[in-house]
Amino acid sequence: MSDVTRAEVAAVACAELFRGDGEILASPMGLLPALGARLARLTFEPDLLLSDGEAYLLASTPGVGEPVVEGWQPFRKVLDTVVPHGRRHVVMGANQLDRYGNQNISAIGDHARPARQLLGVRGAPGNTVNHRTSYWVPRHSPRVFTERVDVVSGVGHDRARAAGVTRFHDVYRVVTNLAVLDFGGPDRTMRLRSVHPGVTVAEVVRATGFPLDTTDAGETRRPTAEELRLLRAVLDPEARRDREVSS
């Protein structure tokens, strides 16, 4: 299928994040991770739990049929038990990410007087030391993939080791508009796993602000016909995905 878009490849790469997760809460932040989680649940991970982004767990997959609620999950429950209990895989955004997976969503520049105030650390410190965490970056660039993040919100592998919190720490993968990366490089640094069809390894290296292990980088798999049908006809018929990731 030659007419597959980059956004569709990225959505499937986001779905692949959840492969093997079983009966845990998938917490995708943002459109492409949400499409990925829904796709995973409709295909190879039917036992995933999904919330409506507010206080309900949904037995039906959002976008498919009438909403059916299967549970209650207000914010306080998320912070008191869901996160610390650890049966969760969050996919967060990142304004900056370094080679060890330290992430910043708090502020750019000096924290005392930032050049740009962002969200604040939000739940990133708690997420990263308690359960599996992945990241979604819609525009892979050296500004995001930087040598050093300004504020460590999400904890990377080096910082987890130094602080002695590796027990539940599991910063897993990064999906971008260009590639899929993990932390299988030397000393648990970022490694290129695959480039999306049409993207070269050199292109990803140029868009990354630190040296990248590119040994054994393959190509990201293409969506199956069923995945394309679900994305195009069921989950995202208005193709909002194309506004986040251009082809």
């Binding site: 912070l79 008191d80 924290h111 650390v121 939000r122 410190p125 708690g126 030391v129 130094a162 002695g164």
Partner: peptide, 30 residues
Amino acid sequence: EYDEGMLGAGLSAAAQRLPFLPVRAGLGSD
């Protein structure tokens, strides 16, 4: 600036009239 779970823990500690509550969130971060 706290992790959002730390904020809840700080309020819980005050609500329970405890001096502090232990959490994992925050360790290793800035």
